Computed example of a mutant assay.
Amino acid sequence: MEKVKLNNGLAMPQVGLGVWKVPLDVTAKMVATAVENDYTLIDTAKQYGNEQGVGQGIAAGLAATGKSRDDLFLTTKIFNGDQGDYDRVRNAVNQQLAALQTDYVDLLLLHWPVFNRYNTSWKALEDIYRDGQAKAIGVCNFNVDHLTNLLDHAEIKPMVNQIEFNPRIHQPDTVAFCQGQHIQLEAWSPLGNGQLLDNPVINKIAKAKGKSPAQVELRWEIQQGFVVIPKSTHVARMKENADIFDFSLDADEMEEIAMLDEEKHSIWYQKFRWSGNPDGVDDYIAKPGAY
């Protein structure tokens, strides 16, 4: 597994396992299977309602393989309803670490740029980082305006920005800004909810390379320097998603895939997007695990 180096020097695997919308009772087996098949990056969040299952799965996977916690790269995120109060963020992280059965996470992210809350939340993350409860800190779904505002108030620059990125949506302004600031980009929904797996351009390239359409999409992203976190509960698919380092796409193939851009978020993005309401009345702010 190839790695990228974050702006604090920490090495981060370039392919990992996402667990969004995976039920709690399925998560433990899924994560254990991933660890047993050499996945090291696991990405979860309090919002997903399955951190406990991730912790159980990691424990089982480590026991089965003889690996140690330090062999893994674990990411979780600050729930929107916990944002905006320093002590609430710190207390929430302590509870999340307990659920994950660990003393630290490798990466802790603000899940969304909640209006009037994220700068205060970031101060808590800076101290969490200084105290060693997180080896790296970053954000999710921050655009250029959010990042500019955060950098105006921050003492520590975010190390990662996790955004929706796949052949259908490129967010070029955010990507360029992060690259200029040496903030590592990480793609959630790197397969675009499967909407391009039947696309003739993707399939033509896949056939030429002897790879699957999913492998071609993921390769297109990692060649641009992204970290990717595809989700699968099936071991064969997990192995396939990680097997993308033995081929490359040429410039023409990269451009053909880039031309598929529609700059449209996934159909469920609006439900979870940043709320402009500082009172956070939306269900996704109020209820962890509510999809």
Rank of each mutant, 00 (worst) to 15 (best):
I205L: 08
K239R: 12
R237A: 08
V114F: 03
K67Q: 12
L10S: 03
G194C: 02
S275I: 04
T102R: 07
T76M: 02
K157S: 11
K21L: 14
A11H: 10
K264S: 15
A59Q: 15
D173T: 07
E186L: 12
T27P: 03
Y104E: 07
V201L: 01
S212H: 02
R88K: 14
P288S: 13
R168S: 14
Q223H: 09
L107V: 05
V201T: 15
P213Q: 10
V15S: 03
T75A: 13
D145T: 13
G138M: 07
V93K: 04
Q223I: 06
N277C: 05
K231N: 13
V4E: 05
T76G: 10
Q184A: 15
D85K: 11
G9V: 03
F115H: 14
A187S: 13
Q162F: 06
A45G: 09
C140P: 04
Q162D: 09
P213G: 09
G138F: 08
T27C: 15
V93T: 02
K209D: 04
K123H: 09
Q52D: 11
Q83E: 13
D70L: 12
K77I: 03
A34G: 10
W20Q: 02
N203Y: 04
G225A: 06
T233Q: 11
I78Q: 02
V227G: 01
V201A: 11
L100F: 00
I285T: 01
L185Q: 03
R90H: 04
I169S: 02
F73C: 12
M159N: 09
D252K: 15
K207P: 01
G61D: 11
V15Y: 03
N166M: 03
V4D: 05
L10G: 03
T33N: 14
S275M: 09
D282L: 05
H170R: 10
L72N: 05
Y269Q: 06
K264T: 12
V26E: 15
D250F: 02
F79T: 10
L6S: 06
V235P: 00
V139R: 07
